[in-house]
């Protein structure tokens, strides 16, 4: 008898609430997964560029690693195209006269950034590692 009269308001509201929770949770999970995948892709691209740049800075003659001047990335940055607009920074610190810490930084959208540091020592001419 009850079924033939349809559902009560309370039954419909509970069913709608459950449906809303399930759908909201699914959408939130989906959105979070998409965001994480995008962040992983960004990080992978940034680290490839950092790694390539570090190979160059390992080989810059020690005398030319200048603390004062502002340096920029020298390597091919095609791989960073999806991250545009992005900025690259090379920062050089000299904790001792015979040591240079070169910190490479890439900053891109949404305040994200990746760093890689190369420590160089004055070996007296040879680029020994």
């Amino acid at each position: 008898m009850r079924r033939s009269r349809g559902f009560s308001m309370a039954e419909v509201l509970v069913a709608l609430a459950i449906l809303a929770i399930v759908i909201t949770t699914t959408i939130a999970m989906f959105a979070e997964r998409t965001k994480r995948m995008r962040e992983a892709s960004e990080t992978i691209l940034a680290w490839q560029a950092l790694s390539n740049e570090a190979e160059l800075w390992r080989r810059v003659p020690f005398a030319q690693i200048d603390v004062a001047s502002s340096q920029t990335f020298q390597s091919d940055l095609t791989v960073l195209t999806p991250l545009a607009p992005y900025t690259t920074v090379v920062k050089v610190d000299a904790p001792r006269a015979d040591i240079r810490n070169v910190t490479l930084t890439i900053r891109w959208a949404a305040g994200r950034e990746a760093h890689l540091a190369v420590a160089r020592a004055n070996t007296g001419g040879g680029n020994l590692w």
């Binding site: 790694s51 390539n52 190979e55 080989r59 020298q74 390597s75 791989v79 999806p82």
Partner: peptide, 29 residues
């Protein structure tokens, strides 16, 4: 290095996807 060619050689490895976007770009020396 710093705009000057050196005696060292580098190997540039690239891979692009089907859309032609660079997905792998690594330099090994």
């Amino acid at each position: 290095v710093l705009g000057q060619p050196t005696d060292e050689q580098e190997v540039h490895i690239q891979a692009v996807d089907k859309e032609g976007k660079v997905a792998i770009d690594q330099v090994f020396v």
